[in-house]
Simulated scan of single mutants.
Amino acid sequence: MARAIWSGALAFGLVNVPVGMYSATEDRTIHFRQFEKGTSSRIRYRRINEDTGKEVDYSDIVKGYELGTGDYVILEPEELDEIAPGKSRTIDITDFVDAAQIDPIYYRKTYYLAPQSKGDDRAYNLLAQAMERSGRIAIANFVMRSKQYLAAIRSEDGMLVLETMYFADEVRNAQDEIARMPSEKDKPAKRDLDMAVTLIDSLTTDWDPANYQDTYREKVLDLVEAKRSGEDIVTPEEGEGEEDKVVDLMDALRRSVEASRQHRAGNREQAGGLQRTAPDHDADELSAKSKKELTDLARDLDVSGRSSMSKDELVAAIEGARGTRRKKAS
């Protein structure tokens, strides 16, 4: 069970709702350790004084603010502590806005807010249902770990969800940052625009996050498992695609619309993978897969009851489904 990373009260006018804050997301990026090539020796980083070459204790390190001229203003930890925002136990709601008015570029990280005890449910539900009925999002300020945050709070299925936000001066202006902006004079022809809208319509589907996956992470894990098992790896070569031969914009759009007739939502079907020199037998090939991979394959084969199956049961069910398909094809 997850632990609250912050606890306090959500202030709504004169109403205080005691809440705990929980991370709503997790970073599943694969992280590596560094080693010297050809050895099992770890590479570690140390705090080194660039003038003396000696390692410096963390307690002897102070912070410097660069002025932009190569000069620095040195700040002592005590000086920063004096002006740091004090510990806060309140998320202060200052305004309510329409959700459509907030550009998603301002959102940073998502957290769940939950009542701290059963006695807090009444006030919590009151705020959640009132916000859901109004269709508005609360804007609030709070302090967590000596850092001040701007936040947006929304109600979703009876749950209050808080998203930390960037302040206005933290969002870059595209016109200030990008040297060449698209020219408004080069407008698309009507037929091209109509065809592009048709393509968008044909690729439109209902949002389902389960349709999308980190295909790179899956390939890395597949590579790790293959090397751990001592298997040989063959990287498939990328062939020349049809799109490389298409020059005319209208022709490219027309081909895209035709291809979209076979469209399936998400990127799961496009994942591809490493070609591993596995045994020819289906059972051996399937047994080498993780339970998650087997469950995904069982779903593609419409195997019923797959969610409650063990790994061995999934292997047997997939073999049976494949055999049935081969018979139908013959």
Results as ranks from 00 to 15, higher is better:
Ala114Phe: 05
Asp120Arg: 08
Thr94Glu: 11
Asp71Thr: 07
Met21Leu: 13
Ala4Glu: 00
Tyr112Ala: 10
Arg268Met: 13
Gly323His: 10
Asn49Glu: 04
Arg3Tyr: 13
Ala123Met: 02
Glu76Asn: 09
Ala259Phe: 09
Leu203Phe: 06
Tyr107Ser: 10
Tyr22Arg: 03
Asp296Val: 06
Leu286Thr: 06
Asp300Val: 03
Arg46Leu: 02
Ser88Pro: 00
Lys289Ser: 14
Val315Gln: 08
Val257Gly: 08
Leu126Pro: 04
Ala4Trp: 01
Thr164Gly: 04
Asp176His: 14
Thr277Asn: 15
Gly323Cys: 09
Asp169Pro: 05
Asp95Ala: 06
Thr295Asn: 00
Asp192Tyr: 06
Glu26Phe: 05
Thr215Pro: 00
Ala283Val: 15
Tyr22Pro: 10
Glu163Leu: 08
Ala152Trp: 04
Val56His: 04
Leu274Arg: 08
Gly64Leu: 14
Asp248Tyr: 06
Ala24Thr: 12
Val56Thr: 06
Ser40Val: 00
Arg255His: 07
Glu231Ser: 04
Ala24Leu: 10
Ser7Gln: 15
Glu50Thr: 07
Ala210Val: 11
Lys87Met: 11
Met250Phe: 15
Glu258Arg: 13
Glu225Arg: 15
Leu113His: 09
Gly38Thr: 13
His281Ala: 11
Tyr72Ile: 08
Gly241Cys: 08
Arg306Tyr: 14
Lys227Ser: 04
Tyr72Thr: 14
Ala140Lys: 00
Thr215Tyr: 01
Ile61Asn: 11
Lys54Arg: 09
Glu225Phe: 02
Glu82Asn: 11
Pro85Ala: 07
Glu55Ser: 01
Tyr58Ile: 10
Leu294Val: 02
Thr110Phe: 05
Tyr58Arg: 09
Arg44Gln: 14
Pro279Val: 02
Gly239Pro: 04
Asp296Trp: 02
Ile105Met: 14
Ile61Lys: 07
Ser310Leu: 02
Met144Gln: 12
Arg154Ala: 14
Ile43Cys: 09
Val315Gly: 01
Thr90Gly: 02
Asp120Pro: 14
